[in-house]
Write a protein that binds this DNA or RNA. Structure first.
Lengths: 209, 209
DNA sequence: GGTTGTCTGTTGCAATTGCAACATTTCTGC
DNA sequence: GCAGAAATGTTGCAATTGCAACAGACAACC
């Protein structure tokens, strides 16, 4: 994760040399995507939280993904392939670094060295993004809520949190991420407690296995 | 999609100039990943089909992902972050292009131009991979099987197949991709038929809405 | 040509989950 | 410090889904 931050900083220092790049600040509720022509746009969250939101035919709202500090998003990764309406909305005040991928190629052919480094950075960041996505996919492909929870706990546990940790999200956010009903998630947590798999106090979890 | 094939071919032509690269042939059932040191390995399927397989604690097998021609996979995208056992197994005879990402940086610093192009290719391919992943995630976050089917139909429909098309996978594979029970998927297809949303004959589908 | 294996198609039943509705607690802004 | 909003926690009930267990169609292989 430290690597990711270094990469972002590196990127920030390089992009001015490459031409097109801008940092914009969005207030809570602002629509993020419409501010630039929608042509292979790439965005980086410098700070804040933005949601990728879907409105179904029925008009109901669902959070497809949530991007936080140092996350990548944008049309380049999310082209319109279905008749779903996708929007990116700032969940809180957020600073976003934006540029258009195609511009990188067209513009600064003068400075090849910079380009090599730039592409390398972007590649690494994109790979880090696919890693996050893979984890999410593996979690989503667990059949039961219990399996999802145990997978997620195992993930937290291995990433240097040990057998005890505090869940870094709200349960509301977590149920979104798991794509399950929040009350069903709470219920399953209770079952895991009563069956002796975990000890829980709010977001504090202790694995007993 | 044509772009993807061009990129792969381009990559194949470039990599020899960059040093470390190999093409290996695997027979059905072979384990693919163990053939190279597991350090930021990147693989490209030249032809054939390979499965990313997970074995749970209970020993049951699940296909997490399936990679086909021109798909990228490898440790670089799938580091070990949980206590799950992941394997990559050839589903049929397959040719795989393999190289180690870190080598790209260490080795050919002599030829900067090639590197720029190489990184650019890899970046584009990786972005194409994230697009596939995003589609899968959006599909997986649909709550009901019906919604998943309609989303998938809409995807097929928009990608130049029109209102009539033939599903390019077996229903067994499709239920894996949807992460739902196959019989439940068949049942929902029947409901969609009887309620007049679709007309179906085997894998041929006609949308009536 | 027959055998074996995979894929399709169907159904009953049990289980998990989503939904709705509510009370309680915590957080946030003024 | 208060008011309103957001998050947590709980429960009953209905609905969707997974599971198991089939039978038949199709394909591959010797």
């Amino acid at each position: 994760m430290k690597e990711k931050i270094e990469l972002i900083n590196h990127l920030k220092s390089l992009l001015p040399k490459c031409g097109r790049m801008q940092v914009k600040t969005f207030q809570k509720g602002d629509n993020v995507m419409t501010y630039l022509a929608k042509r292979n746009q790439i965005c980086v969250v410098l700070n804040g939280v933005v949601d990728l939101v879907r409105y179904d035919a029925s008009g109901s709202k669902a959070i497809v993904e949530r991007y936080r500090e140092n996350d990548l998003f944008g049309e380049a990764f999310h082209p319109v392939v279905t008749n779903n309406e996708l929007f990116v909305v700032a969940k809180e005040k957020s600073e976003i670094l934006q540029f258009i991928y195609d511009d990188l190629e067209e513009k600064c052919n003068k400075n090849c060295k910079t380009h090599t480094v730039l592409y390398n950075d972007l590649l690494k960041l994109t790979i880090l993004k696919t890693i996050d996505q893979n984890i999410r996919i593996e979690l989503l492909t667990k059949t039961t809520i219990r399996e999802k929870l145990l997978f997620y706990f195992s993930y937290l546990s291995i990433n240097n949190y040990g057998k005890e940790f505090t869940i870094p999200f709200s349960f509301t956010d977590l149920s979104d991420y798991f794509n399950v009903d929040r009350s069903a998630l709470m219920r399953e947590l209770k079952h895991l407690s009563s069956e002796g798999f975990i000890e829980r106090n709010g977001k504090y979890i202790k694995l007993l296995y």
